[in-house]
């Protein structure tokens, strides 16, 4: 079967905080690989996933790699659709200004509508 030219809409849904588990870091590795497949890729951050984008992460004291600068490098991979849920920020006392990269802030209803347009959703 010839799959060349198939472009699907991917949404990587990040709902977990970084460092406490490996999902955020290894999830980001999938996102980077997906860039090589010329697909329509977006990332959504909701619930504790919004903490992945917090400015000022310093995991030196827990002897773990700081992978947060990678979110800023996504643009270089032509991954520019970063969606953050407003309700998730508000529930955590965060604002868009606390984030380390430019994002599009969406309400939960808008996020639900966005999800309804996707072909593939992988959540980490």
């Amino acid at each position: 079967m010839d799959e060349a030219g198939t472009v699907k809409k991917f949404l990587f849904v990040n709902r977990k905080a970084p460092y406490g588990s490996v999902y955020a870091l290894e999830g980001l590795e999938v996102v980077l690989i997906s860039a090589a497949f010329d697909q329509d890729v977006g990332l959504a951050f909701l619930d504790d996933g919004v903490y992945q984008l917090a400015k000022g992460q310093n995991p030196k004291g827990i002897e773990t790699k700081n992978f947060s600068p990678t979110y800023r490098a996504l643009e270089g991979y032509d991954i520019e659709k970063l969606y953050v849920e407003r309700e998730s920020l508000e529930a955590r006392g965060l604002t868009e200004g606390d984030l380390l990269v430019d994002v599009q802030v969406l309400g939960a209803a808008e996020m639900a509508a966005l999800m309804d347009e996707m072909d593939v959703m992988i959540s980490f």
């Binding site: 999938v30 690989i33 497949f37 593939v120």
Partner: peptide, 14 residues
Amino acid sequence: LGQLVESAIQSDRL
């Protein structure tokens, strides 16, 4: 990891 992305593209559902 490309095998995962490829599978998502080629399958009807993931």
